[in-house]
């Protein structure tokens, strides 16, 4: 009877990435199994009109990738990308929302907007990941995820193609895990309670 209650199991993973993002996402998402039990939401900074990342990255990944549609219900084993020029948010009823509110410190989509909405909607059920990038987007959002009881993961700045975004996330507050990109997919699988696929992605 004196056992600690089971830690809350996560409900979703949110990822923010900027400069160097294509390669980082190829390696990270390539390391997730097709039946990864959680939805994964991603904001990557893009110029308006850029090609859809979901299509380009799909051939490297077992898990299903798609661009987020407005009002779409979250499904497990699916990776949703913010569309170019829209903020991506998640609602408490587990649907996706988009907005054309002004850029947040020059970024739309902004990582902070996604992370803050996830912290509001899912509190301790959020796993937030800040990857490579050359700005400080994501720092405030990751702090909010931590404050709401969620899990904060930051790519080791020494391992990142652009160190500023992970470094500023570390400077902004406590995080749970700092590790190289190659280890993040395995950690996400552990947190989500599933087996990582065999073999690593180059």
């Amino acid at each position: 009877m004196n056992d600690l209650p089971a830690p809350p199991s996560p409900s979703l993973v949110v990822i923010g990435v900027s400069a160097g993002g294509f390669d980082a996402l190829r390696r990270l998402l390539g390391g997730l199994p097709a039946d990864f039990p959680l939805p994964v939401l991603i904001v990557q900074h893009l110029r308006a009109g850029s090609v859809a990342l979901a299509e380009t990255l799909q051939r490297f990944c077992a898990i299903r990738l798609k661009e987020a549609d407005e009002g779409e219900p979250l499904a497990p084993a699916t990776v949703y990308f913010a569309p170019a020029d829209y903020h991506l948010l998640v609602e408490r009823d587990s649907t996706l929302a988009l907005s054309v509110d002004p850029p947040v410190r020059y970024a739309r989509p902004a990582v902070d907007v996604l992370f803050e909405s996830a912290a509001d909607a899912f509190g301790p059920g959020v796993v937030g990941v800040v990857l490579t990038g050359a700005n400080d987007d994501g720092s405030r959002g990751l702090r909010r995820i931590k404050a709401a009881g969620g899990t904060a993961i930051v790519q080791d700045p020494a391992d990142a193609e652009a160190a500023q975004m992970p470094a500023s996330a570390l400077a902004a507050g406590a995080v749970d895990h700092v590790l190289p990109l190659a280890d993040i997919a395995a950690l996400l699988c552990t947190l989500a309670g599933c087996a990582a696929p065999q073999g690593s992605v180059p």
Partner: peptide, 9 residues
């Protein structure tokens, strides 16, 4: 109104 954006605003 959709909550997430309204709350942000």
């Amino acid at each position: 109104y959709a909550e997430a954006s309204l709350r942000r605003r």
